[in-house]
Design a protein around this nucleic acid. Structure first.
Length: 397
DNA sequence: TCTGGGGTCCTAGGACCC
DNA sequence: TCTGGGGTCCTAGGACCC
């Protein structure tokens, strides 16, 4: 099947808030804020008052005092997401999910069966509305990047097709913030140089952008501004990490309190890991201090695990090592992330009994010596090892 | 009004290997 | 006598996304 596009980017509008409005008719047409402490989602009626995701609840209520504030219902959102993705996969098997509420669909090769991409997109929107009862915006273009930009421009409850012969006319007048991967830092750096539109970015040399923004971002932006985005839709991407964290406020925390938080986080995470039938090798402790600066401390285990006690012991060691800094700087957030994930049943690396492993490692070490210094050196090295013990450790602890 | 919780990818330096 | 260079893994930090 083709991966040449066209590509649809389908993005549910104000997802959590729309689910709440769907399930409670009294909320329809009204400003709705999901989340009490902090805004997880705001309906478009609330956004009109300046309410934004990630604002504190207090700030949001100040902007929009008559908004309905509802606690999140994650199970309902997960179910709605599942139903929407079923519609996606009925449209085409080439679906790349980006998050709970958006995905790329490669509809290349469907033209003869399903009509032009604009019709496929219109039907997708109608089916999501009919079957799941939620508004969704779809951007259509030759590439993933352009489709994503198009849906952003078309929101809410919209459909926008970027024709192949009108790509740069569409792209160049847009503000740089519309580009995928341009956040606050990059936008400010560009604006400081008087660059506000994609067209102005396109006028710069790649080397200039790299000098201004770093290699990855500079190259990325140069490619996007010139509309070079060869990335295919990737089906079946696996999760690469799994994390849990908890904000702690500003008051001081005793080591015992922190340990209790850590235990709860690890317990929850390890359960999730096992439920997903995955194992991890790296445990990362995430810290945020009173000044909201951040730090992380990681340890990689020799063997993969999904065992709560193993993860907890590792996390505890990392926390203990970080306690001096926590005491000095104060802590406002504690988190744990598990990465280096693999499938539970994945073939485990051959684990030999210690002596065999030692022998195998010794062999490898000696092969290396031979490579570097010739076979005569090996004899001398081994004899040295026998007489005095190895002068450098041949095995990790 | 002090700032959630869940992710992805990139970079850079050091260790280690060949 | 003195010196090389590429590749991978790990850790820490940072930007970005929803």
């Amino acid at each position: 099947m083709s991966t040449e596009g066209p590509i649809l980017h389908a993005d549910l509008d104000a997802f959590y808030a729309s689910v709440e409005q769907r399930d409670d008719p009294r909320l329809r047409g009204r400003p709705v804020i999901v989340g009490t402490g902090v805004v997880l989602a705001a309906s478009y009626e609330a956004k009109a008052y300046g309410v934004r995701t990630a604002m504190t609840g207090a700030h949001a209520r100040g902007l929009c005092p008559h908004a309905a504030v509802v606690p999140p219902r994650m199970a309902a959102y997960a179910e709605a997401s599942k139903a929407v993705f079923a519609v996606f996969r009925q449209t085409t098997p080439l679906v790349e999910g980006l998050s709970i509420d958006e995905a790329f669909l490669d509809v290349g090769g469907l033209h003869r069966i399903a009509g032009p991409p604009s019709r496929i997109a219109a039907r997708l929107r109608a089916e999501v509305a009919e079957r799941v009862g939620l508004p969704i915006t779809v951007g259509v273009a030759r590439t993933k990047f352009l489709a994503k930009v198009a849906s952003g421009v078309a929101k809410p409850d919209g459909l926008l097709v970027v024709p192949p012969d009108g790509e740069l006319d569409f792209l160049h007048p847009l503000p740089v913030e519309r580009l995928w991967g341009v956040g606050a830092v990059t936008a400010r750096r560009l604006r400081d140089r008087g660059i506000t539109t994609v067209g102005q970015v396109a006028a710069l040399q790649e080397a200039e952008l790299v000098a201004l923004l770093g290699r990855a971002t500079g190259r990325h932006l140069h490619a996007l501004a010139h509309n070079h985005d060869p990335r295919p839709v990737r089906v079946g991407r696996r999760r690469r990490s799994m994390g849990a964290q908890r904000a702690l406020g500003r008051r001081p925390r005793s080591p015992a309190e922190l340990d209790a938080v850590l235990v709860a986080l690890v317990d929850r995470l390890a359960r999730r890991l096992r439920a997903a039938r995955r194992v991890c090798r790296t445990v990362t402790l995430r810290l945020r201090f009173a000044d909201f600066s951040r730090a992380s401390r990681a340890h990689t285990l020799p063997r993969p695990t999904a065992d709560t006690e193993t993860v907890l012991a590792t996390a505890r060691e990392l926390l203990a090592a970080a306690l001096p800094r926590i005491t000095a700087e104060g802590i406002t957030l504690l988190g744990v992330a598990l990465s280096n994930l693999d499938d539970e049943g994945a073939p485990v690396q051959l684990t030999l009994p210690f002596e065999e492993q030692r022998a195998a490692t010794l062999d490898a070490a000696l092969d290396g010596v031979r490579d570097r210094f010739g076979s005569r050196a090996v004899t001398r090295a081994v004899l040295l090892g026998r007489d005095d013990g190895p002068s450098v450790p041949l095995l990790p602890d």
